[in-house]
């Protein structure tokens, strides 16, 4: 089921981009739709952060990923670049697990 998701997802993402160039301007020129498209990524990304940090399957869990997320937030507050943020989070979780301090 992975290849179909990859192919359909890629095709769909491309068509969304192309869509903005080929449709008449007034179709997307709707303040409500524009506001929604602007805030939708915020809501979705935040939900992804929450679920990918605090859950395993269908269980709400707390493990080394929470510490990783906290470290990532500190790195972001210090204006660290994207890659550094990710490395800091991964390293924090790895060290805590290696030291037996977290699952």
């Amino acid at each position: 089921m992975i290849w179909p998701a990859v192919i359909v997802g890629s095709l769909g993402a491309y068509l969304l981009k192309l869509f903005g160039y080929v449709i008449p301007e007034r179709v997307l020129d709707n303040p409500r739709l524009q506001r929604l498209t602007a805030i939708l990524p915020i809501a979705l990304l935040a939900a992804l952060v929450g679920v990918q940090t605090f859950s395993t399957g269908s269980a709400v869990t707390i493990d080394a990923r929470v510490a990783g997320l906290a470290a990532a937030i500190v790195a972001l507050a210090l204006r660290a670049p994207f890659l550094v943020v990710i490395l800091v989070a991964a390293a924090t979780a790895a060290v805590l697990r290696g030291a037996g301090l977290a699952l």
Partner: peptide, 25 residues
């Protein structure tokens, strides 16, 4: 990767990609 269905994965990805339509515009 966390056991979600293919359909849900595609829908979420496309909802996140919808902003590119507005960028294009």
């Amino acid at each position: 990767g966390t056991g979600g269905g293919a359909l849900v994965a595609v829908v979420t990805a496309l909802l996140l990609g919808a902003r590119n339509s507005l960028y294009a515009l």
